[in-house]
Design a protein around this nucleic acid. Structure first.
Lengths: 214, 214
DNA sequence: TGTACATCAGTGAACGCGCGTTCACTGATGTAC
DNA sequence: TGTACATCAGTGAACGCGCGTTCACTGATGTAC
């Protein structure tokens, strides 16, 4: 039953992608190897032909999941380089949407697995660190581009804003998800408030800073 | 071996507190009933004299853990009502400290277990919703008090700021923890940037809003 | 190009282990008289 | 206030189950000649 090298590689990536969806939905500890391999369409014994351990899989899943989203984000932001980016506003709006809140499996790996990462080994945290640095670079570039002059030549300011933005996004989605079933109104409010805070702030630009939010 | 009612209640609370520390450190799925009862100084069979199931325990742990911190925060903020609160600034500074990052077991339940909460049942999410509402009320009151006039009589503004603040705090600590072992510099940077962003913003008050951050 | 053999991605049974939960039992506390 | 009995927080063995991992085996692919 030996397969083509291409076919084997494809199967391997399919296992990683399937694991990504399951881990984000049910947590790392909430998904067994047997569950995973069955969901991917295989028997569980074959898992160890691809990965030396579950932990190694988790590290690959985190890296792959974060990179896929980063590529998408970079592309969306690059497509409208130069003009005052509405792509960033769209990204923020989608990240803080109820659709993203409900779509754990297909959503951002940070918002789903960041607190699992704290309890994982160095290998997994390395994947997270790489994915986060990558996303910060993309966001930083996006902040630097359109406002290069107006920022007053302080190069670190864009990175500061990127780090702060990512923190808000991840925290808001996590809190919204933590109360989604028990208190949907509060969950909606958390998303809405942060959406307006971040997008209103952007719209008002550097003029008045934090001001009235309707 | 029947115990005094008071002694039994004390043992029960001791199990809840021990579970709080273990759950925050290793996650809900990372701690077994046997581990927990052993850590609390009992044999595992007695667990079901106190709780109908592990899920019920998790709900009580979340409620108790969040409320304990809320009481402490409320007290700290109430102690200096009227004057321009430095207690809030101190809370923010401690929340975003490396000490808090490293002290998962004794730290904030939201920062440790919020993403586990998303995968738990309605009972557990109810505890989180209650604890979050409580903390938001405390923070909202703190925002309203000193600046009552200057806010221009918009009552929801304080709550908006409270929700946004909590989102930043939780997101920042989670991200910092996710990369702590693999990239300590990035982890420190995430905490530092958000500390300066929040505290700088407060210091500058409603004057200039987001401005220069050193 | 054709043949012989090593490789390896699959299968499915099995391993030991720890999980959440249940059970019969103990004996001091709480309660009814 | 004293006696008799029900209650229940403990103990520790046991339940079935699913976990991560290992294993012998299969057979088409990849490779050496």
């Amino acid at each position: 039953m030996r397969l083509t090298k291409a076919q084997a590689a494809e199967n391997r990536q399919h296992i990683i992608d399937t694991a990504g969806h399951l881990f984000r939905e049910h947590g790392v500890d909430g998904v067994g190897i047997a569950d995973l391999m069955k969901a991917a369409g295989f028997t569980h014994g074959g898992f160890y032909n691809h990965f030396p351990s579950k932990e190694a899989l988790v590290a690959e899943v985190a890296l792959s999941g974060l990179q896929q989203k980063n590529v998408m984000l970079a592309q969306a932001l690059r497509d409208e380089a130069g003009c005052d980016s509405t792509a960033l506003a769209q990204f923020i709006g989608e990240y803080l949407s109820s659709a993203h809140r409900e779509n754990r499996a297909g959503g951002c790996t940070l918002a789903s697995l960041a607190c699992d990462a704290a309890r994982q080994g160095k290998q997994v945290q390395g994947s997270f660190a790489h994915g986060i640095e990558e996303k910060l670079d993309i966001l930083t570039a996006s902040f630097e581009k359109p406002h290069a002059e107006r920022q007053g030549g302080r190069p670190s300011c864009a990175r500061v804003r990127a780090i702060h933005l990512l923190s808000v996004l991840v925290g808001a989605v996590m809190l919204a998800r933590a109360v989604a079933d028990a208190n949907p109104a509060l969950s909606d409010e958390i998303l809405q408030v942060n959406r307006r805070q971040l997008l209103g702030q952007r719209k008002q630009g550097r003029r008045a800073g934090r001001g009235r939010h309707s």
